[in-house]
Nucleic acid binder design. Structure first.
Lengths: 342, 342
DNA sequence: CTGTTAGCGCCTTCAA
DNA sequence: TTGAAGGCGCTAACAG
């Protein structure tokens, strides 16, 4: 049905190799035949068959994004999709496509999927959620010299390339802001020790306190799930301490909502009596009362950089890329400093 | 580097066609050679080159999801990514991959991208956001008999296949709930006439009122943007009416947040004095005060169905699929009926 | 049951 | 500047 290079050659009265030449812009073609061929291409609506090109060029101009796309994930983790959008954008600029590799939840199956994708040459490179990277995957990636970037540093030391945000720096930004407002008793609510991001943010929290000559107190650190009751329960205990905090750093905006509810029950005012800062600028952050001061991370541009880095690795597979890109920034709203009058 | 079918054939001491046979499970192969070949495959870690297979089979086992992946989209519209996740899941089960076709914001460029994807045979089918479908795209899709499903009914009448949620039915669910609680003066806040979904939901709102013998009042219908001040402003006017509503249906949960703030300023209680229902069950819906009663739509399963439908069209391209899948359901929370004690 | 052969559509030397 | 020819890795008749 669709036109092939042969059809174009016939219509332009040249051989297929000449057509191929003008299509790949290798001049050495007389301007008259060049034009004839261009016309034929336009007339026939000719676009090269991508499988044939991939086969002979040994490149699919496709990159895979390997992650798990389970139901409801976009609601709990829109960040991930902003990263995908960013990398897609960057890749597209260079003529690459982004394909999704929907990883099975079972690690063995996921490994198999990745190996399969690499060996079948479905893609020229892979972006892969660092969380899913196992030593077995590292081995195959390294052995085949397959261009890759892990999104988020893998949980074990490795020679893989990765890119990550500086979560520790994010905490630092938040703490610096709170300290500048005169706060000295800063609590940290939410998250779980099992979470890499939590550990990094917690580290930044502690380091930043120390840097500001504030001694960290264990009672001020409260990991919790996102369950509303649990958050309220824990926050209540926190506020009942002999020396309650004067400000709270929340692991995410959902936690913040719970914390705020608990604070209301104590009839404390935000930000006059207690300030709140949280991570992640969800669309509702400015809408809740009080509007949330937030440390935001530009995930889209993380994706952009990941895409650009992968493109570099495709050019030069033995290059090692391991970077923290520091993109957090503070968005100041009513939960720390009163701006707007409602 | 990677093994080819030739390597396997050599190692197993057979011809490549025999290898091909066992790989595609067309028996007619003696069990002894079968085993020899399997062993060779395993030993060499052989996986067929997908470009070569695509070229000869004329099928890439890839499907495209065409939409615009601009920065921040996942936060404003996580639904879209839940649909993507659902379709990816369905497709994967049948051995298909989902690739992203990141549409340019300019309609002409977007058309070009789609045409290019079809002609280059990069994919066997396409899922495409109905919003981006133009008559030009319809023409090429129909002319090439290219398997497609529009996600969301296109804005013009067409012979394309599409799948959509029954937004009108969603409204009906909400109204029925409110009426069952004894409400008679039901307002509808938020959305824009230019929005297809708005028009459908609005239609459902009106029809449902009529079905319940409630006469719609123009003053109760207030389209607005998601800007907080605007929402509050409009809601305030609504509440100042001689006969204010006893319940409000909000176009989405962001609107609901603004509406609730405005109501607070009037010192009205929710749900005692006024009830709130909104669309879309965002993660924060249960967290805000009061927790929101919501009509939720299972977008993941919409994706699942879209994927399944596309697969059918790939089998049978001339099949016409145009369905409203009715998946909304009501999640009852404190903004209409008091459940929990805080 | 197995091997030979002819492509799929394109790129790329190598001659002319 | 152009054309002929030989693959890329695989499948699918067609013989044997």
């Amino acid at each position: 049905m669709a036109a092939t290079i042969k059809d174009v050659a016939k219509k332009a009265n040249v051989s297929i190799s000449t057509v191929s030449r003008v299509l790949s812009n290798q001049m050495h073609v007389s301007s008259s035949t060049y034009k004839r061929i261009q016309d034929a291409v336009a007339e026939l609506n000719y676009i090269p068959n991508s499988s044939a090109v991939s086969l002979v060029k040994k490149s699919s101009t496709t990159v895979l994004y390997a992650d798990s796309f389970y139901k409801g994930r976009p609601y709990e983790n829109p960040h991930m999709f902003d990263i995908i959008s960013g990398s897609s954008h960057e890749l597209r600029k260079k003529g690459y496509f982004l394909g999704l590799l929907d990883l099975d939840c079972s690690k063995e199956k996921a490994e198999e999927q990745i190996i399969n994708a690499i060996q079948s040459k479905k893609a020229d490179g892979i972006l892969i959620n660092g969380y899913y990277v196992t030593p077995a995957i590292e081995k195959i990636l390294l052995a085949t010299d397959f261009p890759h970037i892990c999104i988020g540093k893998p949980s074990f030391d490795s020679m893989l390339s990765w890119i990550d945000t500086n979560h520790s720096l994010s905490s630092n930004l938040a703490i610096t802001h709170l300290v500048s407002l005169g706060h000295k008793k800063i609590a940290f609510v939410g998250g779980s020790d099992k979470d890499n991001i939590y550990r990094d943010r917690f580290l930044g929290y502690r380091l930043s306190l120390e840097r500001n000559n504030l001694s960290p107190r264990d009672a001020y650190v409260i990991p919790t799930s996102c369950n509303l009751e649990e958050i309220i329960q824990h926050t209540t205990e926190l506020l009942r301490l002999p020396e309650p905090p004067d400000s709270i750093l929340c692991f995410n905006s959902l936690i913040a909502v719970g914390v705020i509810q608990a604070i209301r029950q104590f009839h404390l005012r935000i930000p006059e009596d207690i300030s709140i800062v949280s991570f992640d600028n969800y669309p509702y952050a400015p809408l809740i009362t009080p509007s949330l001061t937030v440390v935001d991370i530009d995930m889209y541009s993380l994706g952009t950089r990941a895409g650009a880095s992968l493109l570099k690795k495709i050019q030069n597979p033995e290059m090692l890329i391991q970077t923290y890109t520091a993109l957090p920034h503070l968005i100041q709203r009513d939960s720390t400093v009163l701006h707007s009058e409602t």
